Simulated scan of single mutants.
Amino acid sequence: MTAVDTTTVTFDTRSTAAQRPTARGAHLPATARRYLVEAIGTLVLVFTVGASVRSGSILAPLAIGAVLMAMIYAGGHISGAHYNPAVTVAALARGRIDAREAIGYWIAQFAGGLVGAGAVSAVVPAGETAALGLSGHALMGAVVAELLFTFVLCYVVLNVATSKDHPDNSFYGLAIGFTVAAGAVAVGGVSGAAFNPAVVLGGAALGLFTLPMLPVYFAAQIVAGVAAGMAFRALNPDDK
């Protein structure tokens, strides 16, 4: 989720690291490393979401926010630690990455989310959790909740992790993790508090969301990501 050119994403120290001499031996290309970090981070996030929900933990919002924070600190210096296709959309709209890199991130994130869902299925019993399937007024409320908090999440990411006014700060992970935790507490009972298309896909694979919910949630979250990117650009005209 920092900011340099189209070859770098958030919290970026890659441009300098790539210039340092490396030890002899085989190394993954920089692009492959970024995609792998995105897949790992999304896997861990979806696993935590699925395991927390399936186990019925009342501390699920705290666990999800905490693991996201930890994975952001772990992978931010390599990939920018999006772990969320909506955040990648926001970074694309903000002009931080290009379309080709965004597509690679999306593939890695969705793949990681599905593997995370598979790990949940292998480890945590299904229990009696019913799939979230909404219609009418309830569906409209869920879409608004997802749109609002996905926007808030992406907006926070862009401001704390890509703004030129916050270079190399130490609080970006806390801000992002607590945003997700707050959203989970506020609207978890309304929409399931996904705020992330990879989480929605993983949740559908686990039976937490019905399949008809996927396009509806995807649309709301992608619109929120684009809106956050455009809002950042409008409010920070000198921050390219």
Rank of each mutant, 00 (worst) to 15 (best):
A194D: 08
P197V: 07
H77G: 14
T6D: 13
L147H: 02
V143L: 15
M140Y: 10
R14E: 08
L201G: 03
G127N: 10
F47A: 15
G76I: 05
G133K: 05
P29R: 11
A102P: 10
G177S: 03
A182C: 12
A142N: 08
V44W: 01
V185H: 15
M230S: 10
V190P: 04
A234L: 15
A184R: 02
I222G: 02
A142P: 11
P21Q: 12
S15E: 14
S52Y: 02
F47L: 15
D5T: 10
G189Y: 05
G177Q: 04
G192E: 07
A30N: 06
T88H: 05
F151S: 01
I97L: 12
G189E: 07
V200E: 03
G207V: 03
V216C: 05
P237R: 06
D239S: 07
A93C: 06
R24D: 15
A32E: 00
K240Q: 15
M230C: 10
M213L: 09
A193I: 11
A193P: 11
A81G: 08
R34T: 11
M69Q: 13
M140I: 13
C154K: 00
A63I: 02
S79V: 01
L214R: 05
L59V: 06
L139G: 08
A90M: 08
I107Q: 00
L134W: 09
S121K: 13
R94D: 12
V156L: 07
N159A: 13
G202W: 04
G202T: 09
G173V: 06
A234V: 12
A117K: 01
Y155I: 01
L158K: 08
G25M: 09
W106H: 13
G188R: 02
Y155C: 12
P167F: 11
A219N: 01
L147F: 15
G183V: 09
F232P: 03
R94L: 00
A23Y: 05
A63H: 09
L62E: 07
V199H: 02
K240M: 12
A108V: 08
R20W: 05
A51L: 03
A194P: 04
A3W: 08
V180W: 00
G136H: 06
H27C: 00
H77W: 13
A117F: 02
A70R: 00
F110L: 15
D239K: 04
P29L: 04
M213K: 00
V123I: 15
G229V: 07
A111W: 01
Y172N: 10
F11S: 12
A126R: 14
R24W: 07
F209V: 05
L139A: 13
